[in-house]
């Protein structure tokens, strides 16, 4: 296990250094995107429209944050990760078209995303589910709110973050997927566990 501290924009070369089980902290620009934002971003790409922010080299966070406004300034109260599998239908195209380097969420993603990460150079960083205060503390500044018509949780929040993490590299750019590895090992253990229980 190696600890990496990367600053955005992150290059393909930098991201290819990371292997599953490594720990990553991200500093720089991070953008939240859930189902609706992924869908719209891909539609914009199809239509040749520019996005509110250039995503190349940035980190994308699967998160619907709780944000409050104080003296005209946005403050992030809680920003835990949401379940990433819902974005699985968009993520491969998203990585290919926008060259994002880090996808952050919880629960892992499937083969399509793993393949796209291998081909284009990106990683999946698992953030601890429920650790919403830890996440909010690393978000130093809300740079912009875009696509607010999608609603607070679904909008694009553009954050400046400092050492956002720890992120466990659970999918690397070499085709390894830690969640799938664990699932496979658990399945292999099933009969041993049964036997121990006498069932």
């Amino acid at each position: 296990m190696t600890v990496f501290k990367l600053k955005t924009p992150i290059s393909e070369e930098e991201i290819r250094e990371l292997k599953v089980n490594d720990v990553l902290y991200v500093t720089g620009t991070m953008v939240t995107a859930r189902d609706a934002a992924h869908k719209r971003a891909l539609e914009y790409f199809e239509e040749g429209k520019t996005l509110p922010i250039k995503l190349e080299g940035l980190a994308v966070f699967h998160c619907g944050p709780i944000v409050k406004k104080e003296d005209d300034k946005w403050i992030v109260v809680a920003a835990g990760p949401t379940t990433s599998t819902r974005m699985g239908q968009f993520e491969d195209e998203f990585i290919k078209n926008f060259k994002v380097r880090v996808i952050i969420g919880k629960g892992g993603m499937g083969k399509r995303t793993t393949d796209a990460m291998k081909e284009h150079g990106a990683v999946y960083g698992a953030f601890t589910g429920g650790a919403a205060v830890l996440a909010a503390k690393a978000i130093k500044h809300v740079r912009a709110l875009e696509w607010s018509d999608l609603g607070m949780p679904e909008a694009l929040w553009i954050f400046e973050v400092e050492e956002f993490g720890p992120l466990t590299v659970a999918i690397d750019s070499h085709g390894n997927n830690l969640f799938e590895e664990v699932k496979k090992k658990v399945e292999e253990k099933r009969t041993t566990v049964y036997k121990k229980l006498g069932v």
Partner: peptide
């Protein structure tokens, strides 16, 4: 706990 799923399912 012998399944190996572990914290956050990461083993």
């Amino acid at each position: 706990n012998s399944t190996g799923i572990g914290p956050m399912g990461l083993g």
